[in-house]
Amino acid sequence: MTITATAAPLLKYLVRLADDNVVLGQRLSEYIASAPELEEDLAVANIGLDHIGVAQHLYSYAAEVEGEGRTEDDFAFWRTEREFTNVLLVEQPHEGFGELIARQFLFDAYQLELWEALSLSSDERLAGIAAKALKEARYHLRHTASWVVRLGDGTDESHRRMQDAVGAMWRFTGELFEADDLDRQMAAEGVGVDPTTLREAWTATVDEVLAEATLHRPDDPYQASGGRSGMHSEHLGHLLAEMQWMQRTYPGLQW
């Protein structure tokens, strides 16, 4: 399915928010039964469940806005990688627990600010979804920040690994705060938020946690971009191939 260029801005906006969550939820779901402790298997599954749950709400609302009888699953399983508009950070694979935590922490700190802003949206439905997601994001951030600190300030080995992990994810954080025409329009209408306004609070959170973790903020000047316009890394196609396999192999069935 394709979302046309002239589709309602709100539809496109909801879909990009949903795409971030479904892709990250899918990444976390890959990790089941691989955690360093059972407690972390539980926690990672829980965070993944929250993200996919948010994506369901957003896609369902998007489908209503579109009004063509599509479902949340049509959005998740019947678009190609060029049609997904998630940020690059969430599609990055994780080499292990350190990278998983780094990716999640950097994104949690962003989503906390995002949902807080969107919980004040003039669109009541979106505000409701954001308010629920905000509560979840607080838990996620508390959990991942505590791991960044423990791993950063744990052993020499964990410090090195965590520094590398933050470094590996860092170049995908700039994109979180880029605004395009759609963002600006949604912000102007009071529905959405201009992501550039979220950067300051995010930086403060990240700096504080990294400092406590005895980690330094990476200074890689290169920042990747393109997810919002469907220009992804090579990883997304593989993630979607796996996620969409059943629907594509057996089209049009009920499960």
Binding site: A33, S34, L151, S158
Partner: peptide, 16 residues
């Protein structure tokens, strides 16, 4: 594999 791969994490948690 999961257990051994996570050893550095458990050690870090203890050390912290």
């Amino acid at each position: 594999r999961a257990w051994e791969g996570g050893a550095w994490v458990r050690e870090a948690a203890t050390a912290y």
